[in-house]
């Protein structure tokens, strides 16, 4: 089997693609669709730089085959509105930016599901995203600031 056909939505847009069976979900938006926001950091599900949402749940896209997402909804960092990210800019959540798209997708999952914080804290929920620049304070503080802003809105 040299290729498989797969249909899914990417940031709300329907996609019908023919891809090699071993193609990773990380590579499809990057190299076929031209959405290069999603980054590869380790290629083995440790660093979280490639985090995307699959039917609303964060996944490491380096560990998902594109052929597996048939009929599902895939959201990458490009789907997030810039104005919602202002607390992250002000809070120092990004430095070199290589982990940032994954951090934004993991953080936006928390922001969309603040009930997660009843059982976990932000540091636990963000532990799947390695960052070598910030020491995490900028990220954790930004999530807190964004939650506060959302509660006010």
């Amino acid at each position: 089997m040299d290729s498989v056909s797969v249909s899914f939505t990417l940031n709300g847009e329907p996609q019908g693609l023919t891809v090699p069976p071993a193609e990773r979900l990380l590579g499809t938006p990057r190299y076929r669709v031209g959405l290069t926001g999603t980054k590869e950091g380790c290629g083995e599900g440790e660093c979280g730089a490639c985090t995307v949402h699959l039917d609303g749940l964060p996944v490491n896209s380096c560990l998902v085959l594109t052929a597996q997402v048939r009929g599902q909804s895939v959201e990458t960092v490009e789907s997030r509105k810039p104005d919602t990210l202002e607390p992250f800019l002000a809070g120092g959540a990004t430095q070199c930016g290589a982990c940032t798209p994954g951090v934004v997708m993991a953080a936006s999952w928390i922001l969309e599901h603040p009930e997660l914080l009843r059982t976990h804290n932000t540091r636990e929920l963000m532990a799947g995203n390695l960052c070598r620049c910030t020491g995490y304070d900028g990220i954790v503080d930004s999530v807190t600031a964004a939650l506060t802003r959302n509660r006010r809105a």
Binding site: P82, L89, A98
Partner: peptide, 19 residues
């Protein structure tokens, strides 16, 4: 002043070599 390229990084628009 906020980081000049910060929003480009947060929105995935910054272009690194492989991008």
């Amino acid at each position: 002043m906020q980081r000049r390229e910060g929003l480009a990084k947060l929105t995935g628009q910054e272009r690194y070599v492989d991008d």
